[in-house]
């Protein structure tokens, strides 16, 4: 029998061994020393993931609504709805909407390309979430700006259990 958690979903091991913690504790550094090595192997932080999408620009908040349940029992299929307030004209429209789930094995989840012909920036879709985390929706506007909204979500059954 294989482990119920498939390797593709496993995160790089960031926890310290008991021995390391004891050694650090003995040196009186346990609280200070813990975060640094844990962060060394950690996946890219959410801010980095967002910056990569927006090419460094800091997205504004507001004008975008991101509707996702706060608690889902099953991460295999999570309904999301995203709306951006935009007239969707040639001069002012949403170019695309990108969704990031920071703790998924592949944090880039989906991208929706829109155009003035969309009429409305209004998207719904079903996603897969590996674990409880913060999920972010970023919209790129035709004027060059970005808007974002995020939501914390608790997943009781991960999408990483085999068979999902």
């Amino acid at each position: 029998m294989s482990s119920p958690i498939s390797p593709a979903c496993a995160r790089p091991e960031t926890a310290l061994s008991r021995r390391e913690v004891m050694a650090a504790g003995a040196a009186g550094l346990a609280l200070v020393a813990l975060p640094a090595p844990a962060r060394a192997a950690a996946p890219p932080a959410l801010a980095e993931l967002v910056a990569r999408i927006t090419e460094g620009a800091v997205p504004e908040r507001g004008k975008i609504s991101f509707d996702i349940p706060q608690l889902v029992e099953n991460g295999n299929s999570v309904d999301v709805a995203i709306q951006v307030e935009s007239p969707m004209t040639d001069a002012d429209h949403v170019r695309w909407i990108h969704v990031i789930a920071e703790k998924n094995p592949f944090p880039d989840v989906a991208r929706f390309h829109l155009s003035p012909r969309s009429g409305r920036a209004d998207i719904r879709a079903t996603l897969r979430l590996a674990t409880s985390q913060k999920v972010v929706a970023i919209a790129a506007l035709s004027g060059g700006g970005y808007v974002m909204a995020d939501a914390d979500i608790v997943v009781t059954l991960s999408a990483c259990i085999d068979g999902g």
Partner: peptide
Amino acid sequence: VFRYDMHTGVSANPFVSFTT
């Protein structure tokens, strides 16, 4: 009029709704 780029984080039997 619309394009949906999907990665591994999209659920099985994917659903999407959009407007035109």
